[in-house]
Amino acid sequence: MRSTIISAIERVAFEQKRTIAPLTDDLPLVESGLDSLCLAILVARLEDITGRDPFGLGDVSLPTTFGELVAFYEHAA
């Protein structure tokens, strides 16, 4: 899942001509170099690739760091 998310992020960043910070677990998403449009696209792509839509699960605490984002998708199985 981690590698899927990383390659999706790299792809979105490339398309949107964004430079991204090294993706460490404690990297806050707001400092990742991805803006809200990039994050929106990432979430939509991940839904298509993984079939998972953790945001659609309702009352969940949203991820704020890269590590939490990975966990968010891993736990949404």
């Binding site: 809200s36 449009l37 994050l39 929106a40 696209i41 979430v43 939509a44 945001f55 659609g56």
Partner: peptide, 12 residues
């Protein structure tokens, strides 16, 4: 439009 939790909608 495609619904999106971040921006409300995205272009599909």
């Amino acid at each position: 439009a495609r619904k999106n939790p971040v921006t409300g909608a995205l272009v599909e």
